[in-house]
Amino acid sequence: MEIAQNAALVVVDVQKGFEELDFWGPRNNPGADDSIASLIDVWQSTGRPVVFVRHDSDTPRSPLRAGYAGNEFKEYVERRRGKGAGAELLVTKTVNSAFYGTPELDGWLKAEGITQIVVAGIQTNMCVETTARMGGNLGYDVMVAFDATYTFDLEGPFGWRRSAEEVAQSSAVSLHGGGFARVVTAKEIVAAAG
């Protein structure tokens, strides 16, 4: 695995509101935050660019709504912001894809000459997957650090209900098998980027 010297790490929606499990329900991958932190650390120590994405929900009761404490980044992310030797960008959004945020991510990546992105964060099957899919559609070499993501149990049509782990695995299969992104582990990425 090769990680470009200017590959961007896109850290999606690692916000305090996702700790409110009464709202979201059961989650998977309790080690995700440690994996996300390890990616940020290696990106910052090697001078690579980091994009921090924040979801500013316009849903009145969402734990991610603007102005509510849950909208803030988790402490370990906030402590790391502004600490790297490389470029850093804050993107805010109200939809699933970081490519539909402010400032405009695609334009920034192109201006920086970035062609490879690594996506991590919350939720695996929502904003992480949508950002990865769009990145692939836009021609970027996309990697998803699967163990640096997590999600929650989900109910779909026909009363179908899937556990968070089943939902996450399904997302990974769609992304990887569909050719949108390479789904790998944070440990593999850290080893290649360090």
Rank of each mutant, 00 (worst) to 15 (best):
Met1Ile: 08
Glu2Asp: 10
Gln5Lys: 12
Asn6Ile: 01
Asn6Pro: 01
Val10Cys: 01
Val11Asp: 09
Val11Arg: 08
Val11Asn: 07
Asp13Gln: 02
Gln15Gly: 02
Gly17Glu: 10
Phe18Ile: 04
Phe18Ala: 03
Glu19Val: 00
Leu21Pro: 00
Asp22Lys: 06
Trp24Met: 12
Gly25Cys: 02
Asn29Ala: 08
Pro30Val: 07
Pro30Leu: 06
Asp33Tyr: 10
Ile36Phe: 12
Ser38Lys: 13
Val42Gly: 09
Gln44Val: 01
Gln44Met: 05
Ser45His: 04
Gly47Asp: 08
Val50Met: 07
Phe52Asp: 04
Phe52Ile: 04
Asp56Val: 00
Ser57Pro: 01
Ser57Tyr: 03
Thr59Pro: 00
Ser62Arg: 04
Ser62Asn: 11
Pro63Glu: 09
Pro63Thr: 04
Leu64Asn: 06
Leu64Lys: 06
Ala66Arg: 12
Tyr68Ser: 14
Gly70Arg: 02
Gly70Met: 07
Glu72Met: 02
Phe73Lys: 01
Phe73Met: 11
Lys74Cys: 10
Glu75Ala: 15
Tyr76Cys: 04
Val77Leu: 02
Glu78His: 05
Glu78Trp: 01
Arg80Asn: 06
Gly84Phe: 08
Gly84Arg: 04
Ala85Cys: 02
Gly86His: 06
Gly86Ser: 07
Ala87Lys: 15
Glu88Ile: 01
Lys93Asn: 08
Thr94Gly: 12
Thr94His: 10
Thr94Asp: 02
Tyr100Val: 03
Pro103Arg: 10
Pro103Ser: 11
Leu105Gly: 05
Leu105Phe: 09
Asp106Glu: 15
Trp108Ala: 10
Leu109Asn: 04
Ala111Asn: 13
Ala111Cys: 00
Glu112Gly: 01
Ile114Trp: 07
Ile114Gln: 04
Thr115Ser: 15
Ile117Phe: 09
Val119Lys: 05
Ala120Ile: 09
Gly121Val: 08
Gln123Pro: 03
Gln123Lys: 01
Gln123Glu: 12
Asn125Phe: 13
Met126Phe: 13
Cys127Asn: 05
Glu129Met: 14
Thr130Ala: 15
Thr130Tyr: 07
Ala132Lys: 08
Arg133Cys: 11
Arg133Asp: 10
Gly136Arg: 06
Asn137Lys: 13
Leu138Val: 03
Gly139Pro: 11
Gly139Ser: 09
Asp141Met: 10
Val142Phe: 05
Val142His: 05
Met143Pro: 00
Met143Ala: 15
Val144Asp: 11
Val144Ile: 14
Val144Gln: 07
Ala145Pro: 07
Ala148Trp: 10
Thr149Asp: 06
Thr149Cys: 15
Thr151Asp: 14
Thr151Met: 13
Leu154Trp: 09
Leu154Cys: 02
Pro157Gly: 09
Gly159Glu: 12
Trp160Arg: 14
Trp160Ile: 15
Arg161Asp: 00
Ala164Val: 04
Glu166Leu: 06
Glu166Ala: 14
Glu166Tyr: 02
Ala168Phe: 10
Ala168His: 11
Ser171Cys: 15
Ala172Met: 08
Leu175Asn: 03
His176Gly: 05
Gly177Met: 09
Gly177Trp: 08
Gly178Ala: 01
Gly179Asn: 03
Ala181Phe: 10
Val183Asp: 04
Val184His: 04
Ala186Ile: 11
Glu188Ser: 14
Ile189Arg: 10
Ala191Gln: 15
Ala192Trp: 11
Ala192Asn: 09
Ala193Phe: 11
